[in-house]
Simulated assay, not measured.
Amino acid sequence: MPTRPNVTDDPVLPPATLGGDKKRSVEQIALLVFIVVPFVALLAAVPLTWGRGVSWLDLGLLVTMYYIGCHGITIGFHRYFTHGAFKAKRPLRIALAVAGSLAVEGPLVRWVADHRKHHRFSDAEGDPHSPWRFGETLPALMKGLWWAHIGWMFDEERTSQEKYAPDLIRDPAIRGISRHFLTFTIVSLAIPPLVGGLVTMSWWGAFTAFFWGSLVRVALLHHVTWSINSICHAVGKRPFKSRDRSGNVWWLAVLSCGESWHNLHHADPTSARHGVMKGQIDSSARLIRWFEQLGWASDVRWPDQARIDARRNPAPADAA
């Protein structure tokens, strides 16, 4: 049987994303900037808002861009590209790749490779971002939470995209979107000030739109996403059987677009719905349902009652 060619060595097919097997210093510096600057803006948002508020335009840009990027990550990068929870027609496939890229969370192929490796070694040796990496004592867990939330991204070693995401590398369009992550980052940050400036016809309108719709939005989305890696693997109820410590954290459900129903996800990774119990809000699953009804998505892996019951933990759910 012929072997699959090494894509990264093929002169016709460029590497899947930026960089090679190790993160370069310039990438680590850029990553630091993308983390620190939006976070500083998020901290500055409270005193700046106090007593003067935020305009409806800026708030609308923040919310709209936030949920476009959030659903691009949860539906696109995560449930579709990583786990194959449904099949998508080509236009939807490209749209999900672009929407996820607007979240400014890294190139698509790298994101998927990291997450597939996480599931293979979840909360065990080899997991890129387990909060239990350093042990179970309180000091070790505090260190682990920091690692799972942010620290792991500065690790010099990088997950092999050839090993964990060969299917995406073989798709020229997806490989191209992944390689142009910086372009999509610029577009993502530029849309709010462009809209804000045109609507208000002022530089100040462009600046406030950039502050709220770009910087604060990116920081908020980053920390919500990273909280799934850290908080949802340290605390939360565990009504379903999984081989790790993934838990459900209800207060992150709306902001995470349903991703914080994390225990079911690790019990049944290919499920298109994560919030399967009564009252569990999962906007990502709702959108997938609409895609299915429109004929854009098919073969959706919806969990039926038998599938849910088979994964239910017979013991009482552990409380956080």
Rank of each mutant, 00 (worst) to 15 (best):
V300K: 03
H149V: 04
H274Y: 12
G247F: 09
R245A: 13
W302M: 04
T208W: 11
R245V: 01
A234M: 14
S283E: 06
N313I: 11
A16N: 03
L141I: 15
W296P: 02
G213T: 11
W152I: 00
T74Q: 07
S160R: 05
I174S: 02
G196D: 03
G151V: 00
A124S: 15
I191N: 08
L138A: 15
V37Q: 03
S260C: 10
I68F: 12
S214G: 10
G295V: 02
G100R: 06
L252M: 08
T200G: 10
I228L: 11
V33E: 01
A209N: 05
A315S: 14
K22M: 11
G135V: 05
H223S: 07
A45F: 13
M277L: 15
P303C: 09
W212M: 12
V254I: 15
A319W: 09
V109H: 04
S298R: 14
R116T: 00
T270K: 14
R301F: 09
I191L: 15
V33W: 06
D304R: 04
A45M: 14
H265W: 11
I169T: 13
A315N: 14
V37K: 03
V224P: 05
T159Q: 01
G72Q: 11
P14Q: 10
D114S: 01
W226N: 02
A124K: 14
G20F: 06
L18Q: 13
D167Q: 14
V109T: 08
D155G: 06
E259V: 07
A320E: 12
G106N: 07
V249K: 08
R93Y: 01
V54W: 09
P11G: 02
V112I: 03
L141W: 08
L252I: 08
R170C: 02
T159I: 07
L252G: 05
L18A: 14
V187T: 10
A44F: 06
Q305I: 10
A234W: 13
I231L: 15
K117D: 00
G236M: 11
V36H: 01
R110Y: 09
L108V: 04
G20R: 08
E105M: 15
V36Q: 00
I177G: 06
H149S: 12
R90P: 04
G53K: 11
F154K: 00
G20A: 13
T200M: 05
L102P: 09
F39C: 01
R311I: 14
T225G: 06
H180R: 15
A173I: 14
I150E: 00
I75M: 11
T137V: 01
S227Y: 02
H266Q: 08
T137W: 00
S101E: 13
A16R: 03
I29D: 00
G51P: 08
G72C: 12
Q280D: 13
K278V: 12
D58I: 08
H83P: 02
M1L: 12
S256Y: 11
F154L: 08
A85Q: 09
V109A: 04
T82L: 03
K23Y: 06
K163N: 09
G84K: 10
A285G: 13
L57K: 02
M1F: 12
T137H: 02
R311T: 03
H78F: 08
E259Y: 07
H83R: 04
E136A: 02
R116L: 00
D114V: 00
N263F: 08
H233F: 04
A85W: 03
F291E: 03
A103Q: 06
G295L: 07
T270I: 13
